[in-house]
Design a protein around this nucleic acid. Sequence first.
DNA 1: GACGCGTGGAC
DNA 2: TGTCCAAGCGT
Length: 362
Amino acid sequence: MPNTDLPSEQAADFRRVLARWYKQHARPLPWRETRDPYRIWVSEVMLQQTRVNAVLEHYARFLRKFPTIVSLALAPEADVLAVWSGLGYYRRARMLHKAAQFITAELDGVLPSTSAELRKLPGIGEYTSAAIASIAFGESIAVVDGNVERVLLRLTGRPEQATSESKRFVADQAAAVVPQRRSGTNAPGDHNQAMMELGATICLPRGPLCLQCPVYDFCRTRGEHKTEAREKMRSRRVAYLLHQRKRGSAIEVMLHRRPTDASLMPGMYELPELPMDGVEEYTPTLRVRHSITNTNYYVEVFTADKTLLRALPLSIREYEWCRLGQLADLPLTGLARKVLRRLHLIASPGVRMPQPETMMRQ
DNA sequence: GACGCGTGGAC
DNA sequence: TGTCCAAGCGT
């Protein structure tokens, strides 16, 4: 392997140019308006493998409901999952909750302030410990996420490789350009965020915007760096049942709670699934697309009748009736949440709910 | 080291 | 319609 390192004498220039660019172009994101370590922590966990837009929809609501580590620790896990509903990777929410309980019980409710200590908490790995330590506490430690890796490989011209040697190389490069701690500013935290911001807004996976790049002069590849093609998407049709009943003045909808030992979304609520061959003759009440990793689900929702109820794969006792008024407090799967919102059975943000009497859907 | 774990928006 | 994702972690 040729020596692809950024010349070390250029590191200071690189830092300066990047810092100036970041000061001018940083997006105004809510977790950049605070130094509260808890809020930084929540944002970093939410941002794991998740787009900024999706996080924005959940971040404020999560912090309104759980404004402190202690309030999070004291909450039932189902409440935490309910607020997390739609963000995906629900294990993150469970681990965040567990970590908050540990911090409350063992650490006097205070989040550790070093990457080494943070690294020991559930859900906080190599990246997240460095991100919190640098952004919230000013520790001089480099973060390496997908953005930083892509940026550094392109800058140095080293090809993409999923080897430990390549990982080592990227980590070394990142460490070589991260600034020292200095009083009065947060140079390490700002630098780390700048590296990620560059990857997220300029050095895009496909079609990087090299003409706008502040560190074009430092780059060995300038748009010629290849990114691997990915696996093809699959498509699948699935059907779900919408079944409602009245109990007094309340309306209830029938849901299925996934087994608590399921590997996928354990303990979360979804609409009852119907076998596709049971719905051939029916017209769906609702169609939505739902994509999970490698699969586009083309989802159809059917309003219940006797025949459809007989087609259910489980005994009727295995389902649960849930009041419409409490749906928003349940740990719903993202799909269930999307469907129930689309049908106006739970409030979308900013939408006033109609009165219960008018809510029964056909 | 490879794999499983979710999502909705942009195009 | 189908494609491509995004600031990882734990096992």
